[in-house]
Design a protein around this nucleic acid. Structure first.
Lengths: 227, 227
DNA sequence: CACTCATTTGGTTGGTCGACCAACCAAATA
DNA sequence: TATTTGGTTGGTCGACCAACCAAATGAGTG
């Protein structure tokens, strides 16, 4: 993340604030800071939306967090919803990128599934707040915007559908397992983790990932105990 | 179904007077009709909260749905939040009652787990909208009210902790399975179903219940394929 | 019939928020 | 030096809503 900021800085030819040759202090220094701010606005908004919810977060608060005035925010995102939509686009992009990367990083179908589960969890729990907002604030969208985001989400889920279909074809998934239900239930189990996960808590991301993987392999009931 | 409602009512009885100026307790004055009206307000509110979200639903709309004026609503629930809290109390009561009933209806620990999974799903998917609102609108609560609801939710989850602990003790759950993680992940998988379930859709409640049960028994990966 | 108290009515009030804009400015460009 | 571009400022405006209340209603009781 800090790397990105440096890159953005370079791309903008932004003058480094070093040395004493520049006029010191006071706000409106660093004028050409486009890209950095764009990221900054979205991540600040994501954090606030996650903490307080979309409706309970005012544009004024977001602007304050970004150290700008409400009017400046309006210049960039004409409506509050446009800001949310952009946020969600970024969220889908992030999780898609993580899982896609995981998918192509192994030839073994079983290993691949494990990596993808891990990737989804990572995007959801450590990457940022955008994926969380994507999952839990879709109701704030109007019908139109919602359809766009659902389209993007469906594209992401079709990535999973692909992964699972391949495993079924190769016979590594138990016969008779409905792939669509598996996708829905599986992603559900993963997504819900975001509601209780605590980075400082008793379970690390790897603990959770490993636990889910054990269930995927063997379930939880001792053989021969089935009623 | 009506039986469960009575049980829920009983379970909720304890903290009813906590508010002091609380007007929700109408004693036995005209017992039949008052309760009916009260349910009516809560179920209408639950439906609207589920459809549009808490923040986007105005008291005027709720009043209209109940065929009364906003002032009348205010007489019953002094604040919008008080209405939501009452709703959530009822939601916890419902799901607790369903699962408790399922728990005591079988002696076989494995069969019992299956019944409880089914009960949780039923409360979540068919009983009403209150459980859905309970799960997805807790952020609308202020700190104080949230703590009360979390306390109730914890009591419900301890019911599950009991069920699972017993199974572990009896050795029907695979050794080494962390019971707390199992509860969190398991309930998560169940809860998320509420986000996509469609009563008119391809999968019935029984389909879903059965599917989850199969995974619980055996996982999804064919034996010997583990990477 | 009169009394009373729970409940409803219909409307006000104070406050917040999203959207919008005209003036402004600093750097880039020509 | 003159003009354009990209972005900020600070404030206004209309809409809406939760909370509140004084007066009216009406059902049960003595």
């Amino acid at each position: 993340m800090p790397d990105n900021r440096v890159i953005a800085e370079v791309l903008n030819n932004a003058p480094a604030i070093a040395g004493g040759t520049e006029r010191v202090d006071h706000k409106q220094v660093v004028p050409g800071r486009k890209l950095e701010d764009r990221d900054n606005v979205l991540s600040n908004a994501a954090r606030l939306f996650r903490e307080k919810g979309f409706d309970k977060t005012s544009l004024k608060e977001i602007a304050e967090a970004c150290e700008m005035l409400p009017g400046s925010l309006h210049y960039r995102y004409s409506t509050k919803e446009a800001l949310l939509v952009e946020l969600m686009r970024q969220g889908v992009g992030q999780v898609t990128a993580e899982v896609e990367t995981a998918r192509v990083s192994s030839d073994n179908p079983v290993e691949r599934l494990r990596l993808c589960i891990d990737a989804h969890l990572r995007a959801l729990l450590v990457d940022s707040d955008t994926v969380y907002v994507l999952l839990f604030e879709w109701r704030a969208l109007t019908r139109e915007a919602r359809e766009e985001i659902i389209e993007l989400r469906d594209r992401y889920e079709s990535l999973w559908a692909h992964i699972l279909a391949e495993m079924i074809q190769q016979g590594v998934i138990r016969r008779g397992v409905d792939d669509r239900l598996l996708r829905l239930i599986g992603l559900g189990a993963l997504n819900w983790v975001a509601t209780w996960f605590d980075p400082e808590g008793a379970y690390t991301l790897d603990d959770i990932s490993e636990f889910i993987w054990q269930i995927t392999l063997d379930g939880v009931i001792v053989e021969g105990c089935a009623g």
